[in-house]
Amino acid sequence: MASTIVAFELGGREVEVMVKPMTTLQSALRDQLGFTATKEGCRQGGCGSCTVLVNDEPMLSCLLPVEDVAGQRVTTLESLTPTQGLHPLQQAFLDANAFQCGYCTPGMTMLAQALLDHNPAPDRGDITQALTGNICRCTGYGPIVRAIEVAAQAMHAGEEGQPR
């Protein structure tokens, strides 16, 4: 089948990929664009390690045909990372050791970003509920939940212009 060119916004940049039908966003990001922060854990929508944001909504990029994001805004962990230093979520994950092998971290971070976009002051129940689709085999989730709590406080304080 013929390939088509799909254009979308990735981290503020216009990108184009030439893809066969049913190529996933995950594959376009990793195999064509070299954006490997988006992980590949199951390609079945079962682990969440490929989570990216499409127009600020968390999506499993392994199940999403890249044609579906034509003209849309895609955010991956690469574009969350500031030029200098770390995003508050990244800093909180680092401080809380909210990872061991690190393979689930990009998906967890994107999911947390989506949560905080919608709910800047989540309680513990909101956070655990939000994380249920993503698997971590190492940490037991506790450090991840704590990191998101800390990041939420830091981001909230930052928005109100208060010192962290």
Binding site: C42, Q44, G46, C47, I127, T128, Q129, L131, T132, I135, R137, G140, Y141, G142, I144, V145
Partner: peptide
């Protein structure tokens, strides 16, 4: 064959550790 058939506790099931 996949994580829908291989069960593990998620963050909602986590006890106090």
């Amino acid at each position: 064959r996949d994580f829908s058939e291989y069960l593990m506790p998620g963050p909602l099931e986590m006890p106090e550790i």
